[in-house]
């Protein structure tokens, strides 16, 4: 039930931001469509609704966004240098890294984060023992644990606070 309520609020808020007007026709359409969405697939949206009610997670999410923006900028400058460099300094390969995140949302965000940070692109999430396959443009180590320390450790602490 709470999962449906969250879905309803989020979809209504998104609709109101998109239409950006608060008159009756817009509200009526928004409420009815959001109600339909919430009733038909609200229980798919989140499997642990209690997490949405702790303020601490939102604070860590803001930290996450700040770190994310900074890393994203670094990633872009790094790739731009590699692209424009006459010798094309790349040393690519697919490595395997382990992750300690348990929740699906956390793993999804970690994979997205890896894709947008310097030189790495997640290719697949392994079935067993929580590993990610990552295409690395400049392979420094092939050992899963060492690679994990370089690629994922910085963000996992923050993601754990937000999603676990």
């Amino acid at each position: 039930m709470r999962s449906r309520l969250i879905t309803f609020i989020i979809s209504l808020a998104l609709w109101l931001l998109l239409s950006f007007s608060l008159d009756w026709p817009h509200l009526l359409v928004g409420v009815s469509v959001a109600l339909f969405v919430a009733l038909s697939m609200g229980d798919m949206f989140t499997d642990s609704p209690h997490k949405w009610f702790s303020l601490r997670r939102y604070w860590w999410f803001i930290v996450f966004v700040a770190v994310f923006t900074w890393e994203c900028l670094k990633a872009n400058i790094d790739v731009a240098i590699r692209v424009l460099h006459p010798k094309l300094p790349i040393n690519p390969g697919i490595v395997k890294i382990k992750t300690t995140l348990k929740s699906e949302t956390g793993k999804t965000f970690l994979a997205n984060f890896i894709t947008l940070t310097p030189g790495t692109l997640s290719v697949d999430i392994g079935d067993e023992d929580n590993c990610l396959y990552v295409h690395w443009i400049d392979v420094k180590t092939q050992d899963p644990d060492a690679a994990y320390k370089i690629i994922a450790l910085r963000f996992e602490r923050i993601l754990k606070e937000v999603f676990e």
């Binding site: 990633a75 692109l121 295409h135």
Partner: peptide
């Protein structure tokens, strides 16, 4: 400029 699919994806997604 990049040589294969994966490196091209790297450049194109990030930038």
């Amino acid at each position: 400029r990049m040589p294969d699919v994966y490196n091209r994806l790297q450049a194109s997604t990030k930038c």
